[in-house]
């Protein structure tokens, strides 16, 4: 069974008199462990789709099944728990709580999960180490570069042990060198943890790192293919 399956997802926004159709008739299945890029021009519906998959927004029609649960029927409180334990999120920028250090930011999700203090401290350090930030983990976000901040967000998403990580343009604010480096880290961790990733991007060099590219245009999937990922695998 697929980890994620979307059935006939549609999303319409009402703006006064006009109705904007952001998504229509989306059917999509994603297997456990896939590393998927969601691409398409601006306004094609990438963010809308990721928000629906993440339970941050409700579709106008269709069903989203994640790990066997139809999340479109979940109540707010259950949905929140579902995100907390099953999903990881990485956003474009300002992912982190500014008054917490990198380490505390990574721990935050695990605090909310109710993990014991020692366990979460160990995991947070481990993941910060994996993303190469062990030297700066006590710094606050304002003392980290944009690339470093995004890597903290990756560590935060993964340390909580999610089944699926959703990243909406995680590299949009990074230069191409940092962007590809972040993608390499994400890919390496995805392989290692067998965590499923879906990320959206505009960037050609970033999408080349995906194993599967789903292309949206005007709210519809116009292309979906598996590709040979180009990665500069570092020796672990």
């Amino acid at each position: 069974m697929a980890l994620l399956s979307l059935h006939g997802i549609g999303k319409r926004y009402r703006q006064g008199e006009v109705e904007v159709s952001a998504l229509q008739g989306i059917d999509l299945e994603i297997e456990e462990g896939e590393f998927v890029a969601l691409v398409g021009p601006s306004g094609s519906g990438k963010t809308t789709l990721l928000n629906i998959v993440g339970g941050l927004d409700a579709p106008s029609e269709g069903r989203t099944e994640l790990n066997g649960t139809d999340i479109t029927t979940l109540k707010e409180a259950r949905l929140s728990d579902f995100r907390l334990f099953q999903l990881g999120f990485i956003f474009q920028a300002y992912n982190l709580v500014p008054v917490l250090s990198a380490l505390e930011n990574v721990e935050l999700v695990m605090v909310m999960q109710g993990r014991p203090a020692e366990d979460r401290r160990r995991r947070a350090q481990h993941y910060l180490d994996l993303v190469g930030l062990d030297k700066v983990m006590h710094r606050r976000p304002s003392a980290l570069s944009g690339g470093q901040q995004q890597r903290v967000a990756v560590a935060r998403a993964l340390a909580a042990g999610p089944r699926l990580v959703l990243a909406d343009e995680p590299t949009a604010n990074l230069d191409s060198e940092n962007a590809t480096a972040l993608l390499d880290i994400m890919h390496r961790l995805a392989r290692k943890q067998k965590t499923t990733f879906i990320f959206s991007t505009h960037d050609q060099r970033v999408m080349e790192r995906a194993e599967r590219i789903v292309t949206l245009r005007d709210g519809k999937i116009v292309d979906d293919r598996r590709v040979e990922a180009r990665h500069h695998e570092h020796a672990d």
Binding site: G54, S80, L84, F89, Y94, V97
Partner: peptide, 16 residues
Amino acid sequence: THEFGILLAIGMKRRW
């Protein structure tokens, strides 16, 4: 607002 949105997304409860 943005920060709260992120906190809610990653699983923070509204009451917290």
